[in-house]
Amino acid sequence: MISLLRSIGLIFLHMFRKRETIQYPEEKVVLHPRWRGRIVLTRDPDGGERCVGCYLCAAACPVDCISLQATEDEHGRRYPAFFRINFSRCIFCGYCEEACPTYAIQLTPDFEMGEYNRQNLVYEKEDLLIDSQGKYPGYNYYKVAGLSAGVKGKGEGANEEPPVDIRSLIP
């Protein structure tokens, strides 16, 4: 009896609480920056594609919905020739973002991707690549990598000595 009354009382009190239900789609939901929604490919601070086609996102993907092919430009800079995500399979787990060594692939707070036709959920690189650094500004992988791919020369990286003169015997 007492528990019954207590429940009724609690329900009565909830009438004066803040409402959680919102009138979507008229009213938009506020999402946190780290909310895991639509996947994008970002660019580095110099405007170049961040993705280097390392295949780690594809390997990490538990539903195998990412496929790509790496290629390289005349300077040896790697980039994806195509990059495809099948969002009809994606479970938005964010493992791809976690695996990405260059901050290229990122999940964004956007879930409004509904389609009538399932085929339209297959996103190609032109649908994924955005003109922004996304959540991680200031990082350019090729500046910290050891190889030279037209971004910096050998030994010009963040924490690198100038190239060794192999004809010298001086310590």
């Binding site: 594809a58 195998d64 919905c65 990412i66 496929s67 399979r89």
Partner: peptide, 9 residues
Amino acid sequence: SGRTAMLAN
């Protein structure tokens, strides 16, 4: 990898 995406196009 890519089983569900490689032919999705």
